[in-house]
Simulated scan of single mutants.
Amino acid sequence: MQDLNLPKSKVRLEQKEGKTYIFDPIRKKMLLLTPEEWVRQQFLQMLLSMGISKGLVGIEGGLKVNKIQKRADLLIFDRGGAPFLLIECKAPSIKLSNETFKQVAAYNATIKAPYIGITNGLQHYFCAINFENSSYDFLKEIPLPEYVKQHDKNSNDK
């Protein structure tokens, strides 16, 4: 698989009947390795290494958008179980565009996470959502839930 603009992480790969599978630590199963799955799993590993709790991650959770069943790639929850960050993952060959943002924004109309992001493994964009005036602001870094910031502070204190 293609090198990504993400920290290198160890993932479990298996070959079966001429196909490659990757282990998803959240769903606890092997999945067919596609370019999009490669991005999703590598991005997930980065988030976990930053202190995101496995128990507060949803992958490909179902939702309805305009009465059509869709799946959110990565959804990070805060400690209270509220949606915090919704991330749409694309294959590295897919150019991130306004259409990609429209897709994640449409999903977020249902989910109502205060932050959204898109990645193709090479580029990553994150926004803070202002629901009151229907606007968004681009962020310079990945927004993290308070419990991760607390985790980082506690590890620096040691």
Rank of each mutant, 00 (worst) to 15 (best):
M1L: 11
L6A: 06
V11T: 03
V11C: 10
V11W: 05
R12I: 05
L13T: 02
L13Q: 09
L13E: 06
E14L: 13
E14Y: 12
Q15T: 10
E17A: 14
G18T: 02
K19Y: 06
K19L: 14
T20I: 14
I22K: 15
I22M: 12
F23R: 07
D24A: 12
D24F: 04
P25F: 02
P25N: 11
I26C: 00
R27Y: 01
K28R: 15
K29V: 08
L31P: 08
L32V: 13
L32Q: 12
L33T: 15
P35S: 14
E36A: 14
E36P: 12
Q41V: 02
Q45H: 15
M46P: 00
L47R: 11
L47I: 10
S49R: 08
S49P: 00
M50H: 12
G51Q: 06
I52K: 03
I52Q: 05
S53P: 02
G55L: 00
I59R: 14
I59C: 10
G61M: 11
G61L: 10
G61Q: 11
G61I: 11
L63R: 05
V65M: 04
I68F: 03
K70Q: 13
K70N: 11
K70G: 10
A72E: 05
L75V: 13
L75C: 05
D78H: 04
G80S: 10
G80P: 08
G81Y: 04
G81D: 08
A82Q: 14
A82T: 07
P83A: 07
L85H: 01
L85D: 00
I87E: 04
E88D: 05
E88S: 02
E88H: 02
C89G: 03
A91P: 00
A91R: 15
P92Q: 09
I94F: 06
K95H: 05
E99N: 14
T100P: 09
T100S: 15
A105Y: 06
A106M: 06
Y107T: 05
N108H: 09
I111K: 14
I111P: 11
A113F: 01
A113H: 05
P114L: 10
Y115D: 08
Y115E: 06
I116T: 12
I116S: 08
G117R: 06
T119G: 05
N120A: 08
N120Y: 03
N120D: 12
G121I: 07
L122E: 12
L122Y: 00
Q123F: 11
H124L: 10
H124Q: 13
H124A: 09
F126V: 02
C127K: 14
A128G: 07
I129C: 10
N130R: 05
F131D: 01
F131G: 07
S135A: 07
F138Y: 14
F138A: 00
L139P: 04
E141R: 13
P145L: 04
P145D: 03
P145W: 04
V148E: 00
K149R: 15
K149A: 06
Q150I: 13
D152F: 09
N154Y: 01
N156C: 01
D157G: 01
K158E: 00
